[in-house]
Amino acid sequence: MQSFIPIVLVVVQLALLLALSPFVVGLIRKVKARLQCRRGASLFQPYADLAKLFRKQPVISSTTSWIFTAAPYIVFASTVAAGLLMPVFVSHTPLNFAGNIIALVYLLALGTFFLILAGLDAGSAFGGMGSSREAIVATLAEPAMMLSILSIALTAGSTNLSTIVHQSALMEGVVVAPPAHLMALAALFIVTLAETGRVPVDNPATHLELTMIHEAMLLEYSGRYLALMEWAAGIKLLVFLTLIVNVFAPWGIATSLAPSAIAVGLLVYLGKVAALALVIGVIESMFAKLRLFRVPEMLGAAFILSLLALVFFYTLKG
């Protein structure tokens, strides 16, 4: 009996990631629509989109190789695997031992690598352009992400996500290093916007040639392959949102396996993710997309913020 619990937890977490991610995408779209005084599509539209795409016959470019058809599965797999490594609604996630936060970052990078290759495979200039831009954005986001992660990890004395979340969830009253946390949060938030292709960096709603990044890479995809790619993008967004809410605001997460704690943890988690999605929707409505060569400045700022987080962690004793 006892040995069943971890397996059940993993399966539940997997199901939650798969089921919730289209909803988050839909929620952000809804928020944007409301802010633009539109009614917007239903919150559940992304589910319908996915179902539709899965049932369509895909058209594959005749210039492509097996990379093109394998890439969606690899991107999907790496994103899902990354999602399974982190605590979602229970602070002790069973697969925690398999990879710490660096492994999570590199798993996502595996997806990015194959996404870039997929963009190049069809041989269209759009795909190449998208891949090239994705490469620079992903590159510049990496150092900021690593440093901000480290300054969080230092607070908990661990780079294992479960330990980080568990410790900060158990902490009561005063947070240990507020300035450091604040900076790291800001840095990680910017990185999230860049990595998941949200507005100041990329516009997920556009098919305008000159501005697209993620969409440009997916241009040749259709049918189930497109569905998997879109789903993976949704899961990636959810992974980053979960990371932020659980690391910086772990309050309410289930620290034990009591049914009541899990129920509370689940509800609180849903609320927090929805709130963060709301924030992202508002930000997307407030800002215009940046020119590509302004993005390095933004990510440079994120790097500086994460560096300050580190400096403050060591120097500000409070």
Binding site: V174, P178, P179, L182, M183, A301, I304, L305, L308, F312, L316, G318
Partner: peptide, 18 residues
């Protein structure tokens, strides 16, 4: 708590510089 608040405010000042 007080000194943490002061720190936080000072950090925000610094952030404005950046």
């Amino acid at each position: 708590l007080g000194s943490q608040l002061v720190d936080l405010c000072s950090v925000l000042l610094l952030l404005c510089c950046f």
